[in-house]
Computed example of a mutant assay.
Amino acid sequence: MTILTLLGSARPKSNTATILGWVEDELKSQGHTVERINVTRKTIGGCIGCAKCREKAEEIGCIQNDDAIEIMEKMIAADCVLFASPVYFWGFTAQLKALIDRTYSLVVNYHTPNHASLMEGKNIALLATGGGQFENNADGMFTAFDRLSGYLLTKKAAELFVGGCSTPDALPDGTQERAIELACGLCL
């Protein structure tokens, strides 16, 4: 399988990046092709709501010329896309959220019988980390991700939340094992 990972943490040695590294190492050890994109190092403008993308159902019709186009092309080409983000104010980091908003250009005819997506049938997964607990912290992010999966017509292959994070050297016991379980869930 070809797996694209999208890191939404601005800190290259963050909790999220550390856990994502374990996931990627496991996937590579299983023979999968893995590419990581740190979206915080890319130029991704927010969706401007112009709806020009609706004019080209068979391709990414977004009129903005930035890094989001190349990233979405890679998302379409991959077998699985893993979104990885720390929880910022009950949701994704701003950089990853901007990319998620731009996936508006991958779907046409939402809420109709002709609903179609350039990502239809692909696996997606979510890895999130946070300093607090899941409830009243990360739960909204996971609800939004479920809705994104339905919007994109994808299969949610796996998800993992690791709470109580302070620094990578103080991650909760069993975190690496949970990361490996997440990796295995991506490939089913």
Rank of each mutant, 00 (worst) to 15 (best):
V23S: 04
V23I: 15
V23Y: 06
E24P: 08
E24S: 12
E26A: 03
L27P: 02
K28I: 15
G31K: 09
H32R: 07
V34N: 10
E35S: 09
I37C: 01
V39S: 08
T40Q: 09
T40G: 09
T43H: 07
T43S: 05
T43A: 03
I44T: 00
I44G: 00
G45P: 01
G46S: 04
C47L: 07
C47K: 05
C47Y: 10
C50Y: 05
A51I: 13
C53T: 06
R54C: 10
E55I: 08
E55S: 12
K56H: 15
A57T: 11
A57I: 09
E58P: 07
E59G: 12
I60N: 13
I60W: 03
C62T: 07
C62G: 11
I63W: 08
N65S: 10
N65A: 13
D67K: 03
I69E: 14
I71R: 03
M72D: 04
M72P: 02
M72S: 07
E73A: 11
K74G: 08
I76A: 01
I76R: 05
C80E: 07
V81E: 11
F83V: 13
A84K: 05
S85P: 01
V87G: 08
Y88D: 11
Y88K: 05
F89D: 03
F89V: 11
W90T: 00
W90L: 07
W90N: 04
W90E: 05
G91Y: 02
F92W: 12
Q95I: 12
